[in-house]
Simulated scan of single mutants.
Amino acid sequence: MVGHLFGYEAALAIDALARPLREAREVVEHAVERGGDANKLLEKIRTELGAPATRFTDALATGNYDGNLEASTAVRIVTMLRDTLASDPVQAYQRSSGKIASPELLLDDLTSALTRGVDELTRPVDAIKHQAKTVTVGISRSDEGLFDRKLVKSLLEAGVARERLSYRVLKIVADLDAAVSAVTGFTRYQIEGDIAGGSATIAIVDRGGMSKNLTSRVDRNSQLVGTKRRVASDQEVLVARGRSDNRTVIMVPETKGGQTTGITLLHVMFHDRLPATAMRAVLQGYDRRYDRLVDWVTETEGSFREDRLAEVSVADLLILPISDMADHWRPTK
């Protein structure tokens, strides 16, 4: 009898170790039950996940889970918590997992990892496992409507494989769609070699539209340099204007397994002006330009008049340095 009670108490102690994981899982499940946009849902989960995540990692570091939690399970949980709490969770998850990530997939895998940990720790006291919920239920799909945007369609029609576009890149391109009046051509580049080490090369693999009639530096020099190297290194979408020809372009990185494998350059024409609310949405989606512009203007002027966004060139708002754009908000003499 004494041995039985001791075993039961020991099982309860092991079961108590699952509490931080249960709490973390409840954060996800309660948020999902309320439903809504996946990106906003992920932001809310991140703000509430920190406390149980810290309790788990602290206990893990002190050896409390030794012999009770499989090492592979612990690694998986730590990785998923780290990615979810990163400043850019979806991008962090994509880089660590090698998957084409989305908020839904991230939350599904996080819930699965937490459930696996809870199951291992509660098995001694309760053999009935908690079934992980599919967290996408009740969530508006994060990529819903993205593929309907003309700019995204142009990218895919140029030959870019969907799996080479990270969720972050896809969303930025979709957010830029409202600013673009026409796509006039494209150039697709293949990148090989060590980008960080400076030995990477670039080659044109396909062209379309007006791009067929243009000469390219890449035809003469295959070394990856300049803005294309920046795009390949940062794996970020870049809106730019040619120094010599004044043409406006959008450079989109293509990646596989965390490595940049190519760049698709879209030749575009921007609308001259947009309504202030539409322009704000575009700037919020690209390079945090809205927040940066507001910060710069309010630093000197004290307030920011959003209506003036409708008075400034769309291309300039997307391309010129923020410091130059802030001059439009200075009082006229």
Score class of each variant (00 low, 15 high):
A113G: 05
V90W: 08
E43N: 11
H130D: 13
E301M: 13
A132Y: 14
L69E: 04
Y65I: 06
D316K: 15
V268K: 05
A92E: 03
F147T: 02
V268I: 13
F147E: 10
G117Q: 11
D15N: 13
G159R: 00
S211A: 15
S303N: 14
L21Q: 05
M269L: 10
I195W: 11
E23T: 10
I139A: 12
A161W: 09
G117T: 00
V314L: 10
I250V: 15
R207E: 11
S216C: 06
G7E: 09
R243F: 09
L214N: 09
Q284G: 09
D148Y: 10
L238V: 08
G7C: 05
A158G: 08
E29D: 09
D272W: 00
D148T: 08
D245P: 05
G226F: 05
A16C: 03
D66A: 06
T136L: 14
V294R: 10
S140Q: 11
M325C: 11
V75A: 14
S140R: 15
Q190P: 07
S72Y: 07
R19C: 07
G226Y: 03
I319V: 13
T215G: 10
V90A: 06
S166F: 04
I14Q: 14
F56A: 10
V137L: 13
G208H: 06
A31G: 11
K129R: 13
G117E: 02
T184Q: 04
T136W: 13
L21M: 04
Y65E: 03
E120I: 07
N246P: 05
A24P: 05
I250K: 01
T62L: 09
Y8M: 15
V160I: 09
T62M: 11
L42M: 02
A178W: 05
L114D: 01
H267C: 07
R330Y: 08
L224E: 06
A178F: 14
V160P: 06
M80H: 15
S244K: 15
R280L: 14
V173T: 06
R76W: 06
R19F: 05
V27K: 13
I128M: 11
A53E: 00
Q94I: 05
R289A: 00
E70L: 07
A276C: 02
R305I: 12
A278W: 03
R149G: 11
R207T: 15
R55Y: 06
G257V: 02
L105H: 02
T277V: 12
K133F: 15
E48W: 04
R220D: 08
D119V: 15
T255Y: 04
D287Y: 10
T47N: 08
A74F: 01
M1P: 10
A92Y: 00
L155C: 04
L156C: 10
P331G: 14
V125Q: 11
T227H: 14
A59I: 08
